[in-house]
Design a binder for these strands. Structure first.
Length: 405
DNA sequence: ATTAGGG
DNA sequence: CCCTAAT
């Protein structure tokens, strides 16, 4: 079974990377299509050390390992790969875009659906309860399951996740119960807040774990919210954590309610009546849509939700700027970032600003000792930086062009 | 509605 | 990232 996946995926990736190696522009063009695949490819482009097949081998290794260990989720890990694999050929093949992604993604989920039953590992008591209640909220629950698997087996985490699921059940219908049930019924909006907070804190404390996970098993799905942690990671790893992937998939799956989540538009969604589904999606999702709820918590930490800019994204941005010019951010967003719901035009501009700063900064610093440290801060490939610098020369950008001493 | 600039 | 002022 694995071999099959491996074969297809490898071939797809290989062709992909081959193109990449040949022409840099090609990459830019292809970038517009898919993020997930590109993520991988760019990773290779960036560190140039790991070969695609090697990387994937690790992935498979992980999947196999998970299966061997008797974790239910193997059914989940694999389809994951399937999704990737099914996308790459389409990508190299023709100019399909968001549609293609959506299709393959949904397929992935469906596959999960069928294979997913054993996905509840480490769920002693709740497992039964959950199965009883499964019928109605099947979709949502499955989402959770996927998440659970993604987050690896962790006592604390899984317990938290458990509570999450439990909460859903509680809301779906009252369940009779034991001591634990006490916890289950409680979780209200308040709890949700608490949870998200705890979650981020927890992750901060677990740098080692995540690092190991990212490096050891190359678990691309391991999602990290706290930006601090990501910054502290080494460049290679950093680029190997495509947050978009999981989010994209999720978003597509729940596309029904997906109207506009998170920040994309901030004006409209304030006084919209909340559907019951929304409750679920809100907790099934990450901290993204917390802002919508207008609570104190999101009031003071504004940049709570941040997505790391992957090199592929930066690439796209630079391409867009060189194509349409500086200042045409809406266009760039529309044409090159259609697949990513987040990343508003403003974000693009901000990123560009930062890029300029970074490039000019790097130009000034030539010390090797500095380079070591700075290397950790910016995994940006030289070619990219070069392009940024060129664009910086051509396009005058207020403030930044002035070259702060 | 978009963009520039600043926090 | 977020917010605000200016277009």
């Amino acid at each position: 079974m694995e071999t099959c996946f491996f074969h297809v995926f490898k071939s797809g990736l290989d062709s992909k990377t081959a193109q990449d190696g040949e022409d840099e522009l090609e990459l830019g063009v292809l970038d517009g299509l898919l993020d997930e695949v590109e993520e991988i490819e760019d990773l290779h482009a960036a560190d140039g050390l790991a070969s695609p097949s090697e990387d994937f081998l690790l992935d498979i290794g992980f999947a196999a390992k998970a299966c061997g260990l008797g974790f239910g989720p193997c059914g989940v890990s694999l389809p994951r790969n399937v999704s990737c694999e099914s996308q790459s050929p389409g990508l190299s093949g023709s100019s399909n875009s968001a549609v293609g992604i959506s299709e393959s993604s949904s397929v992935t989920i469906q596959e999960n659906d069928s294979l997913n039953k054993p996905a509840t590992y480490q769920l002693p008591v709740f497992r039964h309860k959950r199965r009883h209640k499964m019928p109605v909220q099947s979709i949502d629950l499955h989402n959770h399951n996927i998440l659970d698997d993604d987050d690896e087996d962790d006592p604390l985490l899984s317990s938290m996740l458990l509570n999450r699921n439990g909460k859903n059940l509680g809301e779906g219908s009252k369940i009779g119960a034991s001591r634990r049930e006490k916890r289950l019924r409680k979780p209200t909006q308040r709890y949700i807040e608490e949870f998200s907070d705890k979650k981020s804190k927890y992750f901060k404390g677990q740098e080692k774990f995540s690092a190991v996970a990212a490096a050891g098993m190359k678990d691309k799905r391991l999602k990290v919210r706290s930006s601090d942690e990501e910054r502290s990671m080494r460049p290679g790893m950093l680029s190997s954590v495509p947050e978009e992937l999981s989010c994209e998939t999720k978003t597509l799956v729940v596309s029904e309610f997906r109207a506009r989540r998170g920040r994309p538009k901030k004006q409209a969604s304030t006084s919209v009546p909340k559907l019951k589904e929304e409750v679920f999606t809100s907790d099934s999702d990450d901290d993204d849509d917390h802002r919508v709820k207008r609570k104190r918590s999101d009031k003071h930490d504004r940049r709570k939700h941040q997505r790391m800019w992957t090199i592929s994204e930066v690439n796209k941005l630079v391409d867009g700027i060189s194509e349409y010019g500086v200042g045409r951010w809406t266009d760039i967003k529309r044409l090159l970032f259609t697949s990513s719901a987040y990343r508003t035009p403003i974000d693009l501009r901000d990123k560009w600003r930062n890029l300029l700063r970074a490039s000019s900064l790097q130009k000034l610093k030539k010390r090797e000792a500095e380079e070591k440290q700075s290397h950790a801060l910016r995994p940006l490939p030289k070619s990219l930086i070069r392009r940024v610098r060129e664009l910086a020369k051509v396009h005058p950008y207020p403030r930044e062009r002035g070259q702060k001493r």
